[in-house]
Simulated scan of single mutants.
Amino acid sequence: MPRPKRNEQFDPSEVCIVHVVQRCVRRAFLAGVDKQSGKDYSFRKEWIRRRLEALASVFAVDVLSYAMMSNHMHQILRNRPDVCAAWSDEEVAIRWLRVFPGRRLEEHLAEPTENDVKTLVRNKERIAEIRTRLSDISWFMRALAEPIARMANKQDECTGRFWEGRFKAQRIVDEAGLLACSMYVDLNPVRAAMVDSPEEAPHTSAYDRVKARRGEKLASAAFDLKTIPTDEAGQKLRNTPVNQLQEERKKKRRNPTGRKILRDAWLSPLTMDSGKLSSEPEVHNEGVRSSDKGFLQIAWQDYWALLRWTAGQTSENLKDDVPASLRAILTRVGIDLSMWRDLVWNWKKHFGKSVCIGRPESMKEHAETTGRHHYRGQASVAACFQ
């Protein structure tokens, strides 16, 4: 069965959740310790994390979970056209110009001016197109992957591909699939035997969330969503040496807003607010993420307990039963207790070749909306669900 088109998997005009995987070319360890040269490129994981954090501040896309590995990266993303619809034309223009400034006279300043924003706002057709792109997962991934590739190639003094090709996308169609996929993503470093437990795995969403609970903060990578007065920008360009402008630009890139935030503030909240209607956009107004909407009907403490227990289920330390305190979580979403460990630890066996993630009946229902009878792997995952 051929890989489905992107517009069959997700639509920028409707809210949907997608698991995306982007691999380095030839699966080389271009963000880890290279086996051939012995060079350590692990610092590039922080490049990717910061770029991901920056994009979360301007796109109408929620980052639910992520994991940066040595030769690939995982994200679970939720596009939010409902949030994007609430932004004014001026906000849309500023956000777009932050990510895609284009060719501008103020290239050394590289900051949108009031005149840049007004010019773009006057083009209503262009603004409508940009509004759609800001809630498009494909454009989000493009804005994430391309700058990282350019930075790595410049550092390595080479040309060519850094990423293998277009990212792999899997539509997540129900809460059972979302819970299992979130655990799988957060436990990637544990499954790869890089660490023994999730709290030891930096560059994962689980690590950020647990450190934030302990009060750890970091310099925010969020874009500054303020414009510069056109006159002020002109005076600065005329009166400031180019090398000084470039140095100021580099300094501001490290912390554009000058703020420190909790380590997980840019991520989507894990727990859904039971007092909110599911249709409410819950627009975020502090400039570090698109919305304040959670994605699981589970408290962080319960998620963390289940994550840690699952991380301990290695082949050398395999326990037969899920603890009684955690059984209700899995039973509520319809996951077979006896298959939970196998579902998460052997994820590729169950969902590795599928373009959809969820309970078999949910997968079938979504397949029918795209003109298919079923998805690959739909029958084989039935044993994992009640």
Rank of each mutant, 00 (worst) to 15 (best):
S220P: 01
G358Y: 07
Q22R: 13
D11Y: 09
C356G: 01
D62Y: 09
H19T: 01
V61P: 08
D136C: 15
R104C: 08
Y303R: 02
P12C: 06
G32R: 03
A212Q: 03
F295T: 03
R3W: 00
E175F: 04
R27D: 06
I17W: 00
Y66C: 07
R289K: 15
L187M: 09
K168H: 13
K211V: 05
R332H: 14
S291R: 07
E316L: 09
S325Y: 09
T119C: 10
E232C: 10
N7L: 01
V61N: 15
R171Q: 01
T314R: 08
H19D: 04
V121A: 07
D186L: 03
F162C: 00
T240F: 07
S338H: 12
P323D: 10
T119H: 13
C384A: 05
V333L: 01
K252Q: 14
K118P: 00
A31H: 07
S268T: 10
A110H: 09
R359W: 07
P12Y: 02
N188F: 05
G294A: 07
G258N: 11
P147W: 14
A206C: 04
W309E: 05
L337C: 03
F295Q: 06
F140I: 09
K45Y: 02
D320R: 10
S205V: 09
L270P: 01
K319G: 01
H74P: 02
P101I: 11
R49S: 14
D292C: 09
C181W: 02
R209K: 09
I137R: 10
N239Q: 13
D224R: 13
L97H: 11
I357T: 02
R372F: 01
L77E: 04
V83K: 08
E129D: 15
E146Q: 11
S65N: 15
A28V: 08
E248C: 09
P202I: 04
E216S: 08
T370M: 06
R376D: 02
R26H: 12
A145E: 08
W96C: 00
D11M: 00
A145D: 12
A324D: 15
L30Y: 03
R161T: 13
V210D: 12
P147N: 12
K226G: 13
A56N: 12
C384R: 03
V99L: 09
R191V: 14
V210W: 15
I228N: 06
E282C: 15
P101N: 13
E129V: 05
N188V: 05
N317P: 00
D40I: 04
R263T: 07
G102H: 06
R214L: 10
R95K: 14
E286A: 14
